[in-house]
């Protein structure tokens, strides 16, 4: 299925990078996530990890709706990479955020109100004009079959994304 992948590439807006992933569906992500929420990014802060070698960015998201699982009104999402002073670090395939961005996130709880995005960039959709769009420019997909009736992580109407997240056991 190269055509949809090519379409994803055209739509992908993030910088290219270096992760390789097997095919994954929205339904699969939803089953594995602790929570799926729709919300808006409020702020971001990058800092060094305790090991002194890795940078993480902490993204505060105001949750507008919980589609699956449980999440508080305000959550922190930890993502790899970021910039601290004159040093930047990119862990490829990591989701990127911007202030004020409306998003749907597939989340795995780390501790308390802190989550990570499940499947790195696969688990983040940008919502704009009724459309939910993953930003997958940094992920290389292998070729493979997906379960019948499920839909690959790709651009779709936000209503369909919600239906697929809520409608799956």
């Amino acid at each position: 299925m190269r055509l949809p992948l090519a379409l994803l590439m055209l739509l992908a807006a993030g910088p290219a990078a270096a992760a390789v992933a097997a095919p994954v569906t929205v339904e699969n992500l939803a089953r594995e996530a602790d929570a799926v929420v729709r919300g808006k990014v409020q702020r971001r802060e990058s800092r060094w990890a305790q090991d002194g070698r890795h940078i993480f960015t902490f993204v505060t998201v105001r949750v507008g709706a919980v589609w699956r699982g449980a999440a508080p009104e305000r959550i922190t999402v930890r993502v790899p990479g970021g910039e601290v002073g004159e040093i930047g670090q990119r862990t490829d395939a990591a989701p990127e955020f911007e202030d004020g961005e409306e998003v749907v996130l597939f989340l795995v709880r780390e501790d308390g109100d802190t989550f990570r995005v499940h499947g790195l960039a696969l688990g983040k959709f940008k919502v704009q004009k009724g459309e939910a769009r993953p930003v997958l420019g940094s992920i290389t997909f292998t070729k493979g079959l997906i379960p019948e009736g499920e839909r690959r992580v790709e651009t779709m109407p936000v209503d369909e994304l919600e239906w697929r997240v809520k409608g799956r056991p």
């Binding site: 390789v20 862990t91 696969l122």
Partner: peptide
């Protein structure tokens, strides 16, 4: 871990650079 995400990721490269 957020820099591995899940087991569907086959390879990752982390690059550190001057901003």
């Amino acid at each position: 871990a957020p820099n591995h995400g899940d087991s569907k990721i086959i390879a990752l490269t982390t690059v550190t650079y001057s901003t």
